[in-house]
Amino acid sequence: MKEIIRRIVSSIVLIIVVSFITFFMLMMIPGDAVEISLGTEATPERVRELRAALGMDAPWYTQYLSWLTHAITGDFGVSFTYGETVTSLLTSRLPVTLSLMVMAIIIAVLALTIGVFAALKQNKTFDIIARTLMQIGDAMPQFWIALIFLVYISAQFDVFPISGFTPFTESVYGGFMSLLLPALVLAFGMIATLIRIVRSSMLHSLKQDYMLMTRVSGMNPVVAIIKYPLRDALIAPLTVIGIQIAGLISGVIVVESIFSLPGVGRLLFSAVLKRDLFLILGLVSFIVTSVIIITLITDILYILLNKRMRREES
């Protein structure tokens, strides 16, 4: 319990540090956000007015504190380019990104079986092929996989749209099809690492003395494998899922841009292209905070699972 509270406190500290880093970095931008947003035609008076209206004439720490206190209540300010609040932009884009990520994670979890079989057939043909493919998969940039999918799958088969997104409310099938390829690309980025962890965890447990014991006691080998190594192996990826989530979000930005899905990643990308500071600040803080919270949850889950397992064993 003490450990869990410690994790929660350090995560809160981390979120504040991250928001500070983000804010500070964007403060360093050459030129002034207000001047950029008003363009070259702006009169000095207009610049001064807007700056005062946005509270940008205050010293940076005041600005940071006021931004932070607003951000906590869910108010990230207004986007220059869209003229909407960052929060409303975010909530309208979030469903696409979330369904994309959930689909990618489901695909990745299904792919874990490869790791399980690779471990059971260590150094046999299946294992060697799986490992070779994983090495190659690790070296392939996601945007290239996406391009190949577009050219050799989307363009050849009509069932997959080349770009764009059909909302699930319109057509469940269309929504599923428009997300399937992007989700596959995203899953590709995580699969290699996850399979490797599952495989090595399986190998580790298979070599333990208790596996020999199950043999000696005449336990059905399939039951024995399900009961011990498989259970360990499926918990192992939890430890890295935090890191995986960060990687997943990197992938989301690229994949959403390529498949033109109206999600958070593409929103951030267009915000970066247009130097829309409040939007960047809000989105980056939101993304990184989510990463930290997801990591925290997996950490706590891991602690709890470990404790239960230890109790069961003793």
Partner: peptide, 13 residues
């Protein structure tokens, strides 16, 4: 805690 591309994008900004 920053996803790689996000951090790099911010530096590019």
């Amino acid at each position: 805690a920053f996803p790689g591309i996000v951090l790099a994008m911010m530096f590019v900004v």
